[in-house]
């Protein structure tokens, strides 16, 4: 445990030094600007826009950080050869993967929590009351971050950091387009194509499972089973990704 902790702390600090938390200020400014400027367009919808926009932007910020920093987590260490002394210590490769994962994940968790608090405060300023219902979006947004970070680490474990970010973006798009994949599968008349589409639909990460933003903004009912299953889905998917990343990383050499 202490070995993972050391890597987690190290990764957290390294990433923190890139001044990521400054995004909080940008987030606050964005929200205020948007809520002021969209007001005249919104025609009575501005409370909704403030909510939609706040949730969307905080989620996008998290995803951006995953893709930008997550892709270089392992590569920076290899390119700068800082990983050499780490590999030579009695550390399992899996511990490095998990440590890197948790280190960046915790940082993003701090960031997103900060953004959620700012969001709530701005809602409070405008409406005189908090909207605690929206808080459910936070763990789900973090689940999405988890899965994406797992994907980036998986690709980092064998390909370049550029490749890893591109794959991250592709999986992000696919992951949110999965309802359309299902639609395609449902409607496809070619049986083979239909089954291939279904297999992809069920195997590829379905990031829409973590997207409850609309339901939350409109206070629509969300079945608690859906919440529970989505939670399990995110966790198990992440475990799978990290497991595969570890297997690949164990074979990796440092030339």
């Amino acid at each position: 445990m202490h070995r993972i902790r050391a890597i987690v702390e190290n990764t957290f600090k390294e990433s923190l030094r890139q001044r990521i938390l400054n995004l909080l200020i940008i987030f606050a400014i964005l929200l205020i600007v948007v809520s002021i400027f969209l007001e005249p367009f919104a025609i009575g919808e501005s409370p909704k826009i403030l909510r939609d926009f706040g949730l969307a932007v905080s989620s996008i910020f998290g995803v951006l950080i995953v893709i930008i920093i997550g892709s270089s987590l392992i590569h920076k260490d290899i390119e700068k050869r800082t990983i050499y002394t780490v590999i030579a210590k009695p550390v399992k490769r899996g511990e490095i993967i998990v440590g890197k994962f948790l280190g960046l994940f915790f940082l993003i968790a701090v960031l997103e929590t900060g953004m959620t608090i700012i969001h709530q405060i701005i809602i409070f300023i405008y409406e005189g009351a908090f909207d605690p219902h929206l808080l459910i979006a936070l763990p789900f947004s973090l689940l999405e971050v988890m899965v994406l970070l797992g994907i980036l680490l998986l690709f980092s474990s064998f390909s370049s950091s550029t490749m890893a970010s591109i794959m991250g973006i592709i999986f992000f798009i696919i992951g949110h387009g999965s309802p359309d994949l299902k639609l395609f599968a449902d409607q496809s008349k070619v049986v083979l194509l239909k089954y291939i589409a279904y297999v992809f639909y069920y195997i590829l990460p379905n990031l829409e499972n973590f997207n409850l933003r609309i339901e939350l903004v409109y206070k629509l009912p969300v079945h608690h089973d859906q919440i529970l299953f989505s939670l399990c889905y995110g966790l198990i998917y992440t475990i799978l990704l990290l497991y595969v990343a570890t297997i690949i990383f164990e074979k990796r050499e440092f030339k």
Binding site: R5, E9, N10, K13, T85, V86
Partner: peptide
């Protein structure tokens, strides 16, 4: 200090 701490922890 931080650098050595990381390696000390990694080295159990």
């Amino acid at each position: 200090y931080e650098f050595l701490k990381v390696h000390a922890l990694l080295g159990n």
